[in-house]
């Protein structure tokens, strides 16, 4: 009986240690993820922009034709048709470069571009809900609301990454 009690106590102690270790491991991993999140967001932007930019360039004539039918921006269809995908690809390449400073510089226009897309999506969803966007690839299959939420999430993530990266730079400068 005494032996059994002793074994149970040992088992409980091992469980407690394991739980503490697991919690410690989990918190370490979460901290690692949180620290790496800004960089992950940067790479996410790079992936998104290379994907949509290349898709638009592959079907540039369709993209230009689609833009030409949009009121107000229609007159700049050719410029937008070539400019937006080229800018997206350029930003994607800059964001994927292994230099933190370049990443940080490229992240700003990337987030601003996302903001412009949100402005465009909001306008289109209010005034031309039956039209679909020429946003490239599977993103085109989203409806306006889903697309807007998707872009807003990316905008939020981008702002978070900018703030976090700037904070990290300040901390490094102080050290």
């Amino acid at each position: 009986m005494q032996k059994l009690i002793g074994r149970t106590r040992i088992g409980t102690a091992i469980d407690a240690i394991a739980q503490t270790k697991a919690a410690h491991w989990l918190s370490k991993k979460l901290l690692w993820l949180y620290k790496g999140l800004p960089e992950l967001i940067v790479y996410g932007y790079a992936f998104l922009y290379i994907y949509t930019g290349y898709n638009k360039l592959r079907h540039v004539q369709v993209f230009i034709d689609g833009n030409s039918k949009i009121p107000l921006v229609g007159q700049y269809a050719e410029l937008i048709g070539w400019g937006i995908p080229s800018l997206e690809i350029l930003l994607a390449v800059l964001l994927a470069l292994p230099f933190v400073r370049v990443k940080k510089i490229a992240l700003w226009p990337s987030v601003v571009l996302m903001g412009i897309f949100i402005l465009y999506l909001t306008t289109m969803s209010i005034f031309f809900p039956d039209r679909l966007c020429h946003c490239g690839g599977v993103i085109e299959s989203m409806d306006w609301t889903t697309h807007l939420i998707f872009n807003l999430l990316w905008l939020g993530a981008g702002v978070f990454a900018i703030r976090k990266l700037s904070k990290n730079e300040l901390t490094e400068a102080r050290l």
């Binding site: 790479y43 790079a46 992936f47 998104l48 922009y49 290379i50 994907y51 290349y54 898709n55 592959r58 994607a92 390449v93 964001l95 994927a96 470069l97 292994p98 690839g137 599977v138």
Partner: peptide, 24 residues
């Protein structure tokens, strides 16, 4: 670290281009 980061960047860009072909 620089080489690692560069390789990861290339992988991300390559993944974006590959995803394009895959979704199409």
């Amino acid at each position: 670290n620089l080489v690692k980061s560069a390789l990861f960047g290339v992988a991300v860009l390559g993944g974006g281009l590959a995803a394009n072909a895959w979704t199409g």
